[in-house]
Amino acid sequence: MSLEFSADAQKKIAALCDRYPTKKPVVMAALHLAQKEHGHLSDDALRLVAATLDLPYAHVYGVATFYTMYKREPAGKTTIRMCTNISCMMRGGYEVLAAFEQKLGVKKGGTTSDKQFHLVEEECIAACANAPCAVVGTKYFLDLTPDQVGKVIAELEADPHPEGEVV
Protein backbone atom coordinates (compact mmCIF):
# COMPACT_ATOMS: atom_id res chain seq x y z
CA MET A 1 0.00 0.00 0.00
CA SER A 2 1.53 3.30 -0.92
CA LEU A 3 1.04 6.27 1.40
CA GLU A 4 0.80 9.97 0.76
CA PHE A 5 1.40 13.20 2.60
CA SER A 6 -1.49 15.60 3.10
CA ALA A 7 -1.39 18.84 1.12
CA ASP A 8 -0.45 20.67 4.29
CA ALA A 9 2.52 18.40 4.97
CA GLN A 10 3.65 18.66 1.36
CA LYS A 11 3.62 22.43 1.68
CA LYS A 12 5.65 22.29 4.88
CA ILE A 13 8.22 19.97 3.35
CA ALA A 14 8.55 22.13 0.26
CA ALA A 15 9.07 25.23 2.42
CA LEU A 16 11.70 23.43 4.49
CA CYS A 17 13.58 22.31 1.38
CA ASP A 18 14.29 26.00 0.70
CA ARG A 19 16.02 26.33 4.06
CA TYR A 20 18.88 23.94 3.27
CA PRO A 21 21.26 23.52 0.31
CA THR A 22 19.87 20.04 -0.45
CA LYS A 23 16.74 18.08 0.46
CA LYS A 24 18.57 15.61 2.66
CA PRO A 25 18.45 17.64 5.90
CA VAL A 26 14.65 17.74 5.66
CA VAL A 27 14.52 14.00 6.36
CA MET A 28 14.04 14.51 10.12
CA ALA A 29 11.11 16.88 9.72
CA ALA A 30 9.59 14.68 7.02
CA LEU A 31 9.81 11.67 9.33
CA HIS A 32 8.12 13.65 12.11
CA LEU A 33 5.36 14.59 9.66
CA ALA A 34 4.99 11.06 8.33
CA GLN A 35 4.69 9.78 11.87
CA LYS A 36 2.07 12.39 12.65
CA GLU A 37 -0.03 11.55 9.60
CA HIS A 38 0.40 7.78 9.54
CA GLY A 39 0.70 7.02 13.25
CA HIS A 40 4.04 5.25 13.00
CA LEU A 41 6.88 4.82 10.55
CA SER A 42 6.00 1.66 8.65
CA ASP A 43 8.16 0.59 5.71
CA ASP A 44 5.66 2.35 3.48
CA ALA A 45 5.98 5.56 5.46
CA LEU A 46 9.77 5.38 5.05
CA ARG A 47 9.31 4.81 1.32
CA LEU A 48 7.07 7.86 1.18
CA VAL A 49 9.73 10.02 2.84
CA ALA A 50 12.42 8.59 0.56
CA ALA A 51 10.39 9.30 -2.58
CA THR A 52 9.42 12.80 -1.42
CA LEU A 53 13.02 13.83 -0.80
CA ASP A 54 14.68 11.77 -3.56
CA LEU A 55 16.69 9.82 -0.99
CA PRO A 56 17.58 6.13 -0.99
CA TYR A 57 15.27 4.06 1.19
CA ALA A 58 18.27 2.71 3.09
CA HIS A 59 19.28 6.22 4.08
CA VAL A 60 15.83 7.05 5.43
CA TYR A 61 15.73 3.72 7.23
CA GLY A 62 19.10 4.46 8.83
CA VAL A 63 17.92 7.81 10.13
CA ALA A 64 14.54 6.55 11.31
CA THR A 65 16.15 3.81 13.37
CA PHE A 66 18.76 6.05 15.00
CA TYR A 67 16.48 8.42 16.91
CA THR A 68 14.29 7.24 19.76
CA MET A 69 11.25 9.40 19.00
CA TYR A 70 10.57 7.72 15.68
CA LYS A 71 8.21 4.82 16.14
CA ARG A 72 8.59 1.88 13.80
CA GLU A 73 5.61 0.11 15.39
CA PRO A 74 2.11 1.40 16.12
CA ALA A 75 1.85 2.87 19.59
CA GLY A 76 -0.60 4.85 21.70
CA LYS A 77 -1.91 8.26 20.75
CA THR A 78 -0.49 9.96 23.83
CA THR A 79 3.13 9.31 24.75
CA ILE A 80 3.91 9.74 28.42
CA ARG A 81 7.66 10.29 28.81
CA MET A 82 8.54 9.69 32.44
CA CYS A 83 12.07 10.61 33.46
CA THR A 84 13.96 8.29 35.80
CA ASN A 85 17.39 9.83 35.37
CA ILE A 86 19.50 10.84 38.34
CA SER A 87 17.67 13.92 39.67
CA CYS A 88 14.28 12.31 39.16
CA MET A 89 15.41 8.98 40.59
CA MET A 90 16.69 10.77 43.70
CA ARG A 91 13.25 12.18 44.39
CA GLY A 92 11.11 9.15 43.59
CA GLY A 93 11.04 8.92 39.78
CA TYR A 94 10.99 5.12 39.72
CA GLU A 95 8.10 5.05 42.18
CA VAL A 96 6.14 7.41 39.91
CA LEU A 97 6.97 5.25 36.89
CA ALA A 98 5.71 2.20 38.79
CA ALA A 99 2.50 4.07 39.58
CA PHE A 100 2.01 4.81 35.87
CA GLU A 101 2.61 1.16 35.03
CA GLN A 102 0.13 0.07 37.61
CA LYS A 103 -2.63 2.58 36.77
CA LEU A 104 -2.28 2.09 33.02
CA GLY A 105 -1.83 -1.66 33.29
CA VAL A 106 1.23 -1.67 30.99
CA LYS A 107 4.95 -2.03 31.48
CA LYS A 108 7.27 0.78 30.41
CA GLY A 109 7.61 0.75 26.64
CA GLY A 110 4.11 -0.63 26.31
CA THR A 111 0.83 0.72 24.92
CA THR A 112 -2.56 0.40 26.59
CA SER A 113 -4.98 -1.98 24.85
CA ASP A 114 -7.27 0.91 23.89
CA LYS A 115 -4.27 2.49 22.08
CA GLN A 116 -4.67 5.63 24.15
CA PHE A 117 -1.38 5.72 26.08
CA HIS A 118 2.20 4.82 25.30
CA LEU A 119 4.41 4.79 28.41
CA VAL A 120 8.10 5.53 27.92
CA GLU A 121 10.89 5.56 30.49
CA GLU A 122 12.74 8.70 29.40
CA GLU A 123 16.23 9.99 30.04
CA CYS A 124 16.60 13.50 31.52
CA ILE A 125 13.99 15.86 30.04
CA ALA A 126 15.71 19.04 31.26
CA ALA A 127 13.30 19.77 34.08
CA CYS A 128 15.50 18.34 36.85
CA ALA A 129 14.80 21.17 39.29
CA ASN A 130 11.19 19.94 39.31
CA ALA A 131 12.01 16.26 39.66
CA PRO A 132 10.45 13.84 39.29
CA CYS A 133 8.76 14.91 36.10
CA ALA A 134 7.18 13.74 32.87
CA VAL A 135 6.55 15.37 29.52
CA VAL A 136 3.58 14.65 27.28
CA GLY A 137 3.61 16.54 23.99
CA THR A 138 3.77 20.21 24.95
CA LYS A 139 2.76 19.60 28.56
CA TYR A 140 5.08 19.06 31.51
CA PHE A 141 4.02 17.37 34.72
CA LEU A 142 6.37 18.56 37.43
CA ASP A 143 7.17 17.61 41.02
CA LEU A 144 5.21 14.37 40.67
CA THR A 145 4.34 11.93 43.42
CA PRO A 146 2.90 8.43 42.91
CA ASP A 147 -0.49 9.48 44.24
CA GLN A 148 -0.84 12.23 41.62
CA VAL A 149 -0.60 9.74 38.77
CA GLY A 150 -4.34 8.97 38.69
CA LYS A 151 -5.09 12.66 38.29
CA VAL A 152 -2.49 13.05 35.54
CA ILE A 153 -4.03 10.20 33.56
CA ALA A 154 -7.54 11.63 33.99
CA GLU A 155 -6.29 14.98 32.76
CA LEU A 156 -4.68 13.38 29.72
CA GLU A 157 -7.86 11.46 28.93
CA ALA A 158 -9.68 14.78 28.70
CA ASP A 159 -6.84 16.56 26.84
CA PRO A 160 -4.52 13.99 25.25
CA HIS A 161 -1.62 16.17 23.99
CA PRO A 162 -0.50 13.96 21.10
CA GLU A 163 3.05 14.75 19.98
CA GLY A 164 2.02 15.22 16.37
CA GLU A 165 0.29 18.49 17.15
CA VAL A 166 3.56 20.45 17.20
CA VAL A 167 5.12 19.13 13.98
Binding site: P25, V26, M28, L31, F66, Y67, M69
Partner: peptide
Protein backbone atom coordinates in the same frame (compact mmCIF):
# COMPACT_ATOMS: atom_id res chain seq x y z
CA UNK B 1 13.99 19.66 15.46
CA UNK B 2 15.89 16.66 16.75
CA UNK B 3 14.16 13.34 17.41
CA UNK B 4 15.63 11.89 20.57
CA UNK B 5 19.39 11.21 20.94
CA UNK B 6 21.59 12.66 23.70
CA UNK B 7 24.63 12.33 21.51
CA UNK B 8 23.29 15.01 19.15
CA UNK B 9 24.33 17.54 21.81
CA UNK B 10 27.93 16.77 20.87
CA UNK B 11 28.65 19.40 18.26
CA UNK B 12 29.79 17.22 15.38
CA UNK B 13 26.99 14.71 15.94
CA UNK B 14 24.66 17.69 15.92
CA UNK B 15 26.05 18.81 12.57
CA UNK B 16 25.58 15.34 11.09
CA UNK B 17 22.03 15.31 12.38
CA UNK B 18 21.43 18.74 10.85
CA UNK B 19 22.67 17.40 7.52
CA UNK B 20 20.05 14.65 7.64
Amino acid sequence: RGAGAYICGEETALLNSLEG
